[in-house]
Design a protein around this nucleic acid. Sequence first.
DNA 1: CATGAATGAGCATTCATTCAT
DNA 2: TATGAATGAATGCTCATTCAT
Lengths: 195, 195, 195, 195
Amino acid sequence: MKRNKPKYKQIIDAAVIVIAENGYHQAQVSKIAKQAGVADGTIYLYFKNKEDILISLFREKMGYFVEKNEEVIAGKSTAAEKLLVMIENHCRILSEDSHLAIVTQLELRQSNKEIRLKINEVLKGYLHLVDQILYYGIETNEFDPDLDVRLTRQMIFGTLDEMVTTWVMNDQKYDLVAQSSAIHQLLINGCGGKR
Amino acid sequence: MKRNKPKYKQIIDAAVIVIAENGYHQAQVSKIAKQAGVADGTIYLYFKNKEDILISLFREKMGYFVEKNEEVIAGKSTAAEKLLVMIENHCRILSEDSHLAIVTQLELRQSNKEIRLKINEVLKGYLHLVDQILYYGIETNEFDPDLDVRLTRQMIFGTLDEMVTTWVMNDQKYDLVAQSSAIHQLLINGCGGKR
Amino acid sequence: MKRNKPKYKQIIDAAVIVIAENGYHQAQVSKIAKQAGVADGTIYLYFKNKEDILISLFREKMGYFVEKNEEVIAGKSTAAEKLLVMIENHCRILSEDSHLAIVTQLELRQSNKEIRLKINEVLKGYLHLVDQILYYGIETNEFDPDLDVRLTRQMIFGTLDEMVTTWVMNDQKYDLVAQSSAIHQLLINGCGGKR
Amino acid sequence: MKRNKPKYKQIIDAAVIVIAENGYHQAQVSKIAKQAGVADGTIYLYFKNKEDILISLFREKMGYFVEKNEEVIAGKSTAAEKLLVMIENHCRILSEDSHLAIVTQLELRQSNKEIRLKINEVLKGYLHLVDQILYYGIETNEFDPDLDVRLTRQMIFGTLDEMVTTWVMNDQKYDLVAQSSAIHQLLINGCGGKR
DNA sequence: CATGAATGAGCATTCATTCAT
DNA sequence: TATGAATGAATGCTCATTCAT
């Protein structure tokens, strides 16, 4: 695909806006094209079909997510710090792009099973990051050596997701990043970190 | 509404089966009617519209959930024990009704924002139960007195939800109830409970 | 299918009219529905899809064709007479329904290969009738005993088809039935019949 | 038009191949351009539009047909012989170019009424040849002096056409030229030729 | 002459809901 | 109460043609 052409990103950004503002089921291809400033047919020069737009959207944005997280995590030396900056980063990115927050937390979940399976594939990269932090914390004796990494990752991911979704459903009216520290403490306690 | 008439529950149970077996977007009213053994039009004698079926379904099932949980929680004297039986109960009910697990964890989440907001209303009864355990644990000095109840509730609920969803997505092929104890320990640690 | 319900035939007759008057590629389902006096969706209670309308149309009309032909053929005792009444009958039916003539000779031939293969299946019943006349003529010594039935059937069918198509393409402005006798003589000569 | 430029014939030959291999409705301009090794836009330097490609294709190929037929017919002295070589020639040319046979007998017939009318115009040159043979046969007393030339031409043309179409629909799996003699005899009989 | 990216009109089909019986 | 035939709005995608380069 022509992922480097400017119109590729142009269409994805248009999709985020249209989906956030109209809802998943009201995000017609023609609306996305109009928002992107191209003709309907042009969409199909860059994407196989509508489904491909949604999956590409998720892949592009999540790729940025994972990339940013890898950067900030690498800059910290303890597992606790790594987890904290990851949480802060997660909250910050979504706080800064309210459209993206709506799309990932609410709208894209209405897609059919096929799309969601592909989205889950993309998510695995993110889950892997969390695992790495946990393994690191166990190695450095910060965390309980008997920690069940799979369950703990589910706790961390589930907690973050629930926190953000609640925030979006409350119309993003409070400061999400400000909660990072408190939720971090809760999770670190869960991991058996020092209090 | 005619919630006591036999056909009311008959249609709701049919909806659970049809949604679980066909997926949310393939669960047409006519399919639900056929499964329930009534005519399409009869559905509308018991429900305002399709949305009403889904919300009623959630309310009925979740009502049973909260009721059962209140029972088991009342039988325990410490907050930690209360949380444990709640988690066990949660896992057990979903383990025993695989259709319901699929519907609540995967399919019903594909519904639009409007339906999900109403579902969230129903969920508040459940969240309130968690809050009560947390307040109780703070009172009894089991939990950290400075615990942010709202955030902690999000952690508990998000973790449970993620755990069950992962289990459903893995085709329910391992023992969910068996994980109760481990996840309980993680969450209790998070709450500052004794180790 | 509900082939006996009045709307079934109503829709097929509407399709003949719409296709004849607008052309194959301008015969939208909505136009057919409007002509039939039903809603678009009603079409799909009686037909699987648009293709099914066209094939059913051909099957219904051709069924009438074969049926009528069997009647008139049975009433004659020589192969030459049988062939004559078949030709007359063929010409008469199409002369009496100018819409049907346009649809079968011009418009339906624009359909894709899949539809045309199914139409050809239906046509086999008609070709079989011609074969029967030829075998009968050979038995009764009217026709050349060495007649190649397959080729001769192709001659008869090809000649009739070309004659009718030419007539339709000339806007049906001359009397088709009046040509029956002359074309019959040509074909009978071909078959080695007495002059 | 630029009918002498090499790309003109190049595009027409590409069209024959693409239509034969993909079918009329799957023969997009872009596919023809690709097959011809030119850009989509280049097509429009040599042809007015897609319709023009098809009609030109037919004209070019049919021109060769008529030309060849005129040659072989001129070499024979009786009408019966002329008809025989014409039939043989017709069968031979299509036997030798299976792509062309598929295109003229099956695919091009799916075109709309407008194109088919123009194709018929081109065909008139061919029909005229048949007429000439018939007039010649009447003059030389080979054929019935009362022969209806127009009808007889329809018989000859319809028969040939049906024969070839049947052969193509049966995947060209038998020898078409070998049938020339038998079909010739049938047609000559029809014309009142000596037996 | 040649290119190929961009255009945008056009349509079969589904399914929640109604209402005459 | 119960039925189920009928309704009709709503949308993703293709492809012939253009035109700036």
